[in-house]
């Protein structure tokens, strides 16, 4: 039920996305060779469709009633987990940053160093502190994947 209120926020985000997509769609030629339905035909249908459905989502979010008991029950359930959840959110954000950095480093630095570094940092972020698990196992896994893909499957890894 609480999710329904979030729907209003999501609908506004989607409408902002539609405005951006509509602006980009104006840059696509609207008519094609031999037909009125050009390259912008389907994009316009989808942008308008998402916008209309977002408005419907917003209205549904506004009309959904959340009772006081539901709010307090949800708050009680969340209270003991809150600090853990906050830490998890921070780690999650750091993890996304790690994934982007890994994607950038994969080709530039090479598979072996970038993957070992990402593996070790990831294990540390997941609160793994045993040396065997943090250093030795990642090195073995990364080396096995490298051997399997490069020598057995003939897939080039940078």
């Amino acid at each position: 039920m609480l999710l329904k209120r979030t729907d209003c926020g999501l609908a506004l985000l989607l409408l902002a996305f539609c405005a951006f997509a509509a602006w980009r769609t104006t840059m696509v030629p609207s008519s094609g060779a031999g037909s009125q339905a050009g390259p912008a035909f389907l994009p316009w249908i989808t942008v308008v469709g998402i916008a209309l459905l977002s408005v419907a989502l917003f209205i549904r979010g506004l009309r959904t009633e959340v009772t006081v008991s539901e709010v307090s029950a949800a708050n009680e359930e969340r209270a003991p987990q809150r600090s853990g959840v906050r830490y998890a959110t921070v780690v999650l954000v750091l993890f996304v940053v790690l994934m982007i950095a890994y994607a950038i480093a994969f080709e530039r630095v090479g598979y072996l160093p970038s993957t070992i570094a990402t593996f070790v940092i990831g294990m540390l972020l997941l609160r793994e502190r045993r040396v065997l698990q943090v250093l030795v196992v990642p090195a073995v896994v990364v080396a096995c994947v490298y051997y399997g893909f490069t020598y057995l499957l003939d897939v080039y890894l940078p």
């Binding site: 993957t115 990402t118 593996f119 294990m123 997941l126 698990q133 896994v141 994947v145 890894l157």
Partner: peptide, 19 residues
């Protein structure tokens, strides 16, 4: 172990997408 499996999946996601 779950932590190890999670990180191994990350590696496969990247290598698989690259391949």
């Amino acid at each position: 172990p779950r932590r190890l499996l999670t990180m191994a999946i990350v590696v496969f996601c990247f290598v698989g997408s690259w391949a």
